[in-house]
Simulated scan of single mutants.
Amino acid sequence: MADHVQVVTTTDSEQAAAELARSIVDARVGACVQVAQIRSFYRWDDAVQDDPEWQLQVKTSAERLEALIEHIRANHSYDVPEVIATPIIGGNRAYLTWVESETMQ
Results as ranks from 00 to 15, higher is better:
7 V>T: 11
94 A>F: 02
68 L>D: 01
2 A>E: 10
29 V>L: 06
52 P>G: 03
100 E>P: 00
36 A>H: 09
16 A>W: 09
80 V>E: 08
65 L>A: 00
93 R>A: 15
16 A>N: 12
39 R>I: 04
101 S>V: 00
19 E>T: 03
99 V>Q: 04
95 Y>I: 03
75 N>D: 07
20 L>I: 00
17 A>S: 10
102 E>D: 08
16 A>E: 15
86 T>P: 01
1 M>L: 04
4 H>P: 00
50 D>H: 14
91 G>H: 14
1 M>W: 06
60 T>S: 13
71 H>C: 09
60 T>H: 01
4 H>C: 00
11 T>V: 11
36 A>Y: 09
69 I>L: 04
30 G>N: 08
57 Q>K: 11
10 T>Y: 14
48 V>R: 11
103 T>E: 08
67 A>V: 08
39 R>W: 14
36 A>C: 06
54 W>S: 04
8 V>W: 13
97 T>K: 10
51 D>W: 03
53 E>Y: 10
37 Q>M: 10
13 S>R: 08
102 E>K: 08
72 I>N: 00
98 W>K: 03
37 Q>F: 01
4 H>Q: 06
67 A>L: 12
96 L>I: 06
38 I>S: 05
42 Y>L: 02
47 A>V: 10
49 Q>M: 00
28 R>A: 09
29 V>C: 12
7 V>Y: 09
8 V>F: 15
42 Y>N: 00
81 P>M: 12
5 V>N: 04
76 H>Q: 05
99 V>K: 04
23 S>N: 05
6 Q>S: 14
51 D>Q: 11
33 V>W: 08
69 I>T: 14
69 I>W: 03
51 D>I: 00
14 E>F: 07
72 I>R: 02
37 Q>P: 06
8 V>Y: 15
64 R>L: 01
84 I>D: 04
52 P>A: 12
8 V>D: 06
62 A>W: 01
93 R>V: 14
22 R>Q: 07
21 A>C: 03
9 T>K: 07
87 P>R: 10
49 Q>K: 09
72 I>C: 02
38 I>P: 06
4 H>A: 06
41 F>W: 13
13 S>C: 05
55 Q>P: 02
